[in-house]
Write a protein that binds this DNA or RNA. Structure first.
Length: 193
DNA sequence: TACTGGATTCACT
DNA sequence: GTGAATCCAGTAA
């Protein structure tokens, strides 16, 4: 299984979000399949709407992790996208495939369906914090530059057939005029509510 | 410097 | 279905 190359992420967030479904995310012993993503356009609710010091990784690069802290207690992991633009795709849910013991310990639950079925749950289960912010999504990039490998990467996997992908605008976020788009694998029990 | 609000989660009713 | 927990980033003054 090969890490996705940096160039693979040089597409718009709306294009990238459904194509990330089915890809494999690994960090240390933890392994999972991405089953739900979310893409924002120019919604004022999006961190990309106004580039600040915090959201600068979205402007400066693509194919990097953009990890931010929210609600005083949760981390959320995004993959930066949009070559020549500004954007990121939020990883909302992952189907656990490896390192379940570690995930259960971090999440303090034995309920496998509750391990990664939410953006903050995913970060907690995988031990993702601000330390991973701005690190490249691909191990290959790290090797190429000689930087230390983050150990936190997305690996290639067969495309999910479009017929298995569902799309729905996210409700409940009313600050903007444009709703973020949620993509998920139909029937997968690990997607968030 | 102080204040406000948030891409969430979970316990409780 | 509702509300509390919690603290950082952004903004206004």
């Amino acid at each position: 299984m090969n890490p996705l190359p940096q160039s693979w992420f040089a597409k718009s967030a709306l294009t990238l979000a459904p194509r990330l479904l089915g890809k494999v995310v690994k960090k240390g012993s933890c392994v999972g399949i991405i089953v739900e993503t979310e893409a924002y356009g120019t919604d004022p609710a999006s961190h990309a709407y106004r580039v600040t010091k915090r959201s600068a990784p979205m402007r400066d690069s693509w194919g990097h992790w953009y990890v931010y802290f929210t609600y005083g207690m949760h981390w959320c992991a995004n993959v930066t996208s949009d070559k020549g633009g500004i954007g990121a795709v939020l990883i909302r849910a992952v189907e656990p495939k490896g390192g379940l013991g570690t995930m259960k310990h971090r999440r303090k639950t034995d309920n496998i369906r509750a391990l990664c079925s939410g953006p903050a749950k995913f970060c907690q289960a995988f031990g993702i914090t601000g330390a991973q912010n701005k690190s490249p999504v691909t191990d290959g990039f790290a090797r190429h530059t000689g930087r230390s490998v983050s150990g936190f990467a997305i690996y290639d996997a067969p495309e999910i057939p479009k017929t298995r992908i569902a799309t729905s605008p996210r409700v409940g976020i009313t600050s903007g005029t444009e709703l973020p788009w949620r993509f998920y694998i139909k029937g997968n029990p690990f997607v968030s509510r």
